[in-house]
């Protein structure tokens, strides 16, 4: 080694130093940084609880009697010890319905976003990477879908397939896919022209590896933030569709549908609206907190 090289050598690395560096993968690093963000922790804890509730409620409640059954003696029961969130116009316990409803809201929110993400990310990155004809084809189709109001799409889907969780998923994932396609296309176009992509080619990597290993990881931070925001949005959208009557069929305790049911009784039994509304709000807030935290944690430029 020439003289010029030696003097920039780092000071000798101690064993302790080395241990600190060793075996800290990207994922561990992300988790470590996520843990420093209090908002993200609160959001994450809430979401974990929600998932547990969603899973457990299937076992602790009897769907036919407690969730959709009629209990004439307890109609409009006020919130109290027996029913912390009160009861609705059919005498059903609102807490139980909200807990049970978490399954629907979470499945629909997360499911529609994941399906939309897969479709949108693939189409968007292809459009952004190859440009030209593929880009035009994908983005014009995207524009067409984008120009149709979401509710319109939902109404069409529902009138074809009937009201069910599946058709709600379908109509929501279309909207999610269009926005993911847009975001990933823009991000890919920005990254694709950078020198490290050229250098990856010069290294001999095949195109698919360049896209998967070098381009998409650099596009992830806007996408991840969009994912968490979109889950929140889709939970709200699913609730609004249920509120309008084109979402989930009636007796199923979806939060939006409960809100819609309670609307008529808002003066005499306000708890019928307040608690489902709060459930939606807190869940969306938790998702957004976690999204913000994830974005900060995933961005190596912010590493301290």
């Amino acid at each position: 080694m020439s003289k010029n090289v030696e003097h920039v050598n780092e000071p000798e690395v101690t064993a302790e130093n080395l241990k600190q560096f060793k075996g800290r993968s990207m994922a561990q690093e992300t988790v470590r940084r996520l843990m420093k963000n209090k908002g993200a922790i609160v959001g994450m804890i809430f979401l974990i609880c929600l998932v547990i509730i969603a899973v457990v409620s299937g076992f602790i409640f009897d769907y036919d009697t407690q969730i959709i059954g009629l209990n004439p003696t307890e109609i409009y029961a006020k919130p109290g010890l027996a029913h912390p969130f009160g009861c609705d116009n059919m005498g059903r316990d609102i807490l139980a319905r909200i807990m049970y409803g978490a399954r629907y809201s979470l499945t629909i929110g997360i499911g529609s976003v994941l399906i939309g993400l897969c479709i949108g990310l693939i189409l968007g990155s292809l459009a952004g990477f190859y440009g030209g004809f593929i880009d035009n084809l994908v983005m014009r189709a995207n524009d067409i879908l984008y120009s149709i109001p979401n509710i319109m799409i939902a109404v069409v889907v529902v009138s074809i397939f009937g009201t069910s969780v599946a058709s709600l998923l379908l109509s929501l994932c279309v909207t999610a896919a269009t926005s993911f396609a847009r975001i990933s296309r823009a991000a890919v176009m920005q990254v694709r022209g950078q020198e490290f992509v050229e250098s990856a080619y010069a290294m001999g990597l095949p195109t698919w590896k360049v896209i998967l290993r070098h381009i998409i990881p650099n596009c992830l931070s806007p996408i991840i933030v969009q994912v968490t925001l979109a889950v929140g949005n889709n939970i709200i959208a699913a609730s609004s569709l249920s509120f309008l009557g084109v979402g989930i069929p009636v007796p199923i305790p979806e939060w939006g549908a409960m809100l819609s049911d309670g609307r008529t009784y808002i003066r005499s039994a306000p708890w019928m609206c307040v608690f489902p509304g709060l459930a939606i709000m807190v869940t969306v807030l938790a998702l957004n907190l976690m999204g913000d935290g994830l974005r900060d944690a995933l961005d190596p430029k912010l590493k301290k």
Binding site: A200, M203, H214
Partner: peptide
């Protein structure tokens, strides 16, 4: 051939490395 027989060094080291790897 690329990378194995012929390798290239790019002009700007600020952009020639993947920032997330």
């Amino acid at each position: 051939m690329r990378g194995n027989d012929v390798a290239m060094i790019f002009q700007d080291p600020m952009t020639a490395l993947n920032p997330v790897m």
